[in-house]
Amino acid sequence: MRAFLSCLSVKKNKQKPRYQEAIILASETSFTVNEIKALYDLFKKLSNCIYDDSLIHKEEFHLALLRNSHKQNLFADRVFDLFDVKHNGVIEFEEFVRSLSIFHPNAPKEDKITFAFRLYDLRQTGYIEHEELKEMVLAILTESELTLSDEEVESIVNKTMMEADSKGDGKIDQEEWKELVEKNPALIKNMTLPYLKDITLAFPSFILNTDFEE
C-alpha cells in the first residue's frame, strides 16, 4: 500500500512530450489534446511509482491494477505485453496513449475485437486453441480462489469451443472470434473504459497541473 500511495506524488518527468507530439497523437487516437494532457499526468504517476524513470514497468502496472507489484496475474501480463508494442519490457507514453485509445468508448468496435483476440491468443499463433482457453480458465479460477474439477473445466472449455469453432478445425480464428462477439457483445465489455470518455472532467487536476513543452 505504501508503494502505491507513493504513486500520488508526481516526480520529475524525464520524457516530457512536446505539444506537437500531443497534436499528432490526438489526430491518430480517440483522444483530444486536452485528454492526452490528462493522460500524461496519469502516466507520470504510474510510471514513477517504483522506478523513477517515466516508463511503466510491469511491476508498476501490476501495482496499479492489482494493488500488488509482485502478484502473479496471467491477464495483467497479457495486457502489459500488448501495451508494450516495442517489446522492450516497459510501456512508454505513446504506447500507453495508443493502447488506451482502443479502450475509449468511441474507438472502433473492430479494434476492440482484434485487441481482445490478441489478448486471448496466448501463444500468438493466430488462433485461440483449446489448451490456451483451458489455461486461461484455470488462471481465473486460481485468481478467484475457486475450485472446479478437471471434468467441469473441460466441459466449460469444450462447450465454448463448440460454440465458437464454426469451422470445426479445433481452434478459434479471428473470423470465428468476431462471429462469437457479434452473438455475445458482452464478451468485449471490458474493452471499453467509460473513464476515458471524459478524462478531463473526471480528473480536472491533471489538466491544471500538466506542463507540456510548447
Binding site: 504510474l46 491477464f75 495486457v79 481465473i140 467441469e152 466449460i156 458482452a186 471490458n190 480528473f203
Partner: peptide, 24 residues
C-alpha cells in the same frame, strides 16, 4: 456448466483497467 469460458475469463482483475485511474 452453462458458462461461456470467455465470460468467466473476462472477470479477471487483470483486465479491469479502471484500476489505472484510481487516485488512491
Amino acid at each position: 456448466p452453462c458458462f461461456n469460458a470467455f465470460d468467466i475469463i473476462s472477470l479477471s482483475q487483470g483486465f479491469d483497467l479502471s484500476g489505472l485511474f484510481e487516485k488512491d
